[in-house]
Amino acid sequence: MKKTLSYVGLIVLYFLHQDFWFWNDGTLVFGVLPVGLVYHLGFCVAASLLLLSLIRNAWPDHLQVREEGEDSKE
């Protein structure tokens, strides 16, 4: 279930990249950074969290196990 949620999160995040709601908005957040830029910085943080979730819930352990099995035969 958690694995599926991580994959769904990946798809949702991909579509959230297309932030048409800030397309024409040049507001400077705190007078410093444009809101569209702040959004995409937040997107980078979300990407990192998603990767953390993939590592925890969908790590391809089967590849490593098989590798170790083969090593032990040698």
Binding site: L10, Y14, H17, H40, C44, A47, L51, P60, L63
Partner: peptide
């Protein structure tokens, strides 16, 4: 303008590590 960040950087921040996750680990194995 600032759109260049979303155009290349933020999407790379998602797609590239995902490729390392799905492809890189398998290639390593």
């Amino acid at each position: 303008g600032i759109g260049v960040f979303g155009l290349m950087a933020s999407i790379s921040a998602l797609v590239m590590p995902c490729i390392f996750f799905f492809v890189g680990t398998r290639v390593w194995a």
